[in-house]
Structure formats: structure tokens, C-alpha cells
Design a protein around this nucleic acid. Sequence first.
DNA 1: TGCCAGGCCGGGT
DNA 2: ACCCGGCATGGC
Length: 236
Amino acid sequence: MGKRNNRRIRSGKLAAPSPPAGNILLDIYKRLFDYFGPQGWWPADDAFEVAVGAILTQNTAWRNVEKAIYNLKEEGLLNPPGLHGLSLEHLASLIRPSGFYNVKANRLKAFLDLLFNDYKGDLDIMFSEEASRLRERLLGVKGIGEETADSMLLYAGEVPIFVVDSYTKRILFMHKIISSASDYREVQQIFMKWLPHDPELFNEYHALIVKVGKDFCKKKPLCERCPLSYLFSVDK
DNA sequence: TGCCAGGCCGGGT
DNA sequence: ACCCGGCATGGC
């Protein structure tokens, strides 16, 4: 995954009439991409692995998720029937390294229930459903919130929906592009209003935001060398 | 050595 | 409608 998309960013069409906000978001993207290059998200072999990883990585470092994914693969259980047939206790033990293993075992099971009850255990069938409706169905699963649902839609289903996470809000707030009160939907709408609805662009953009957040938003000295530091001197 | 990771839920104000 | 504690491992 991540290599099958070679689409170019669509020009024109849905592009915003380039007002300030649109320019800023596209400009930020270009700078991040120029600086970091392609991020190759989502690191997974197939759509199911993406969906599982999306739940396992909730408030958790990705390296810990990798260990859990490895355990599941090792047992040959990283597929819908494999996980579906697992006891809660066994599943929890396998995903232990990813933390919150009891809640996550329940969340994975809840997702699998939806997958098997409504889509015959087939992700292709699941993603053939109309996106906004599927989003609502996913949000109905206990343990799947907006970011997790959108991550599944974008990275597993290639639905052009922008994934917002804590880094996204933090960085946009730091640069005075949003207020601290902005909620998930609001931030998402900003991106989707001013950017072309291209899954590949959304894919790369979110990954780049996570990258710049990890690399530069930890400590103050790093912040000055951040590829987005230029934003501090533009406004007012 | 404490703090934090690619959140979300449920209960209390 | 917010706010907060709980959930847990592993790396810096």
C-alpha cells in the first residue's frame, strides 16, 4: 500500500479561488513536502492491516503498534476471519505491546462485528458503500472516533477525506490559522474547502503534519528550524 | 526518570 | 456543552 497511488494532484476544478487561507494551506503542504519528501503512508500490506493499525495506534507510538501487528502476522491472524475467531483474551495478549490492550481488543472486536454483520467480513464490500454513510456506520462502533474513522476511509478506502489529529490542531493553532476552540469537523472543513479532494494529497499532507509535529514541535530550539517557522513572521 | 505517543469513552459538572 | 480520569506499553 502507498505505492499504488501515482496520481498527480489535480489542478483546477475543485481548487479554491486562492484566497489567503487556501494559499497558506497549499503553501504549507509544498514546504513540508519539499523538506521531508513523501512519507509512504499508510505502512501496511493491505486495507485490513490499515484498519487494525488505525485502532491500535490511538494515543500510542507507532513503534509499539508495529510489535502488536507483528504478533498478529506471526500467528497468521491478521485477516478478518483470523481476528474474528479469536477470543478477547487471546487477542488482548497478542496486541499487548500497543498498550490499552483490553480496550483495544474490545474495539477491534466491535469493528469486526460491523464488518461481518453488515459487509460479510469483506473490506471491499464495506468500502463500496457511500462514504459519508460508511463514516457514520464506523462512528457508531464503540472505540472508533472521527480520526480513526477518517484514517480508515482515507488510508484503507482511498476516500478523499482529510484526517485531523492533535498535531494538526496544534500546528494550525500555533500559527494562528485556527482558534483553540476549533473542533474536529471545523478543522477538517478548512482543509477540504481549500484543497483539491485528492486522496493522494490528503494522504501525504496528514502524514507530513505528523512528521513535522514529531520532529519539530517537541522542544523550543527545534521550533526555530522548523520548515514552517516562516509562518511566524507573515501575519500582521 | 518522568513524560508522552498518529484517541476515545463514560461519568460528572 | 465542556472537562476529566481511565486505559498501558515502551522509548527517549
